[in-house]
Structure formats: C-alpha cells, structure tokens
Amino acid sequence: MKPVTLRTERLVLDVPALADVDLIAEYCADPVFEHWMTTPWPYTREHALGFVNEYVAVGWQQDREFTWALRPAGSRELLGVVGIRREDDPRWTDGQWNLGYWMGAPNRGAGLTTEAARAVVDWGFAEGIAPRYRWEAVAGNVGSLAIARRLGFTFLETTPGRAEGMPAQRSDTWHAELGPDDDREIKPGWPV
C-alpha cells in the first residue's frame, strides 16, 4: 500500500522519515522504553535508521504494518509514533490487527497519543483493512492502558509469561480488543 497521511484536529500523521532519525533515537533511549517497550535496548541511532529505512518501509510495501509519525499540525517536528500490524497468531481472531504507539517524553500528557491512535483505528475500520484490533502491553504499563481504555477497547485478560520481544523478567501481559461496532465508551473490567 502507498503510505497514507491522516489528519486530526491537532496532528498530521505521516510516514517517519530520515529527518526523524535523531529524535527517534533520542526518544527511544528513554529508560521507560527499556521497561515497557519491545524496542531494542540500549536504543541507538542505528536502530532508528533501521526502523525508518527498513521496518516502516517494508511494512507499508507488504501491507502488513502501517506506521505513522505524529506531528503537530503545521510542523514537521516528530512527537511520537503510532502503528497497526496484521497478526497471524492462531489465538487471535482471523485478520486481527495489533495497535501500538509511543510518545516522546516531552510530548506526553496532552492526549495526543489517544487522538492519533483514534484516527488510525477509525481509518483501518473505514478502509476495511482491520476487522478487529488487538492491544497488548506489559502488565503495569498504565500509560498504554489508559489510552486503550479511552479508545473503547474491552479488556480481555492478563496472561502469564513474557511479552514477545521483552526480557524474561517481564512476567505478565495485558490484552484487550476493539471491533468496528463496539461501543467506544470506557468499559469496566480494566486492571486497577
């Protein structure tokens, strides 16, 4: 698929570019990433180059993963990243897509990740790309949980065992899902 640009009230979502590499490396070197994310650690500029030149580009080319850079409307500054990835895990509903996101530390707390993730989820439903979304996070990642909750996801379960790509000491993973006809209100049942 050819990359798609999305717009929200405050953001433009487009493809991460070479000009973003230094900020991606800076943001992903935040110790929060080591604890909660599946990004390499320690994260380096070379990882950011591979992310932009290979991971993002191949995902769009193969229609398997669509990744956007979050930027303020009217600016090219990178704030964070949001993406969806088609999952072939047999435990999941056929055709389900995984939603993921991160925001650079200076940009957290303004609701921008929720705004961007909502735009991506709505786009996937409207285009018929994603019949359902899955969200998962290392148990305890309350920042990611808060966003999924605000998007209207339904919490499913906590599973034991390390999250894919995480160090062995991360023991549990939270799971939730969202369908196109689901009520988008905040639902009960989320971990405290």
Rank of each mutant, 00 (worst) to 15 (best):
W97T: 01
V138L: 05
T173I: 04
L70E: 08
Q169K: 02
E65P: 03
A126Q: 12
G124P: 10
G74R: 05
G111C: 05
D122N: 08
Q61R: 12
F125Y: 14
G152L: 08
T67N: 11
R71A: 09
I84F: 08
V142K: 03
A168E: 14
L99K: 10
R86A: 14
T67D: 07
L151Y: 09
W97K: 01
F155Y: 09
E177G: 12
W123E: 10
R86W: 04
A117E: 03
E115R: 04
A110D: 03
P131G: 11
L78E: 04
R162M: 10
D122H: 01
G143N: 09
R86N: 09
P72T: 08
G124W: 02
L145K: 13
S144T: 06
L145E: 05
T113N: 06
R85E: 14
E177L: 01
R85W: 02
G80A: 09
R108E: 13
E136I: 00
D94V: 15
D63Y: 11
G109H: 04
E157L: 15
E164W: 05
W174I: 01
W60K: 03
T158I: 15
G109F: 08
P131A: 12
A69S: 13
R71P: 07
L70N: 03
A119H: 02
D122Q: 11
G104H: 04
L78R: 11
R162C: 10
W135T: 11
D94S: 15
A163L: 11
E115L: 12
N107C: 14
A130Y: 06
T159S: 12
A168H: 04
T114W: 00
W68S: 09
L178M: 13
W92T: 04
F66K: 11
R76P: 10
A117L: 02
R118I: 00
G152C: 06
S144V: 14
G74C: 07
T173N: 01
D88N: 14
G80M: 05
G140E: 10
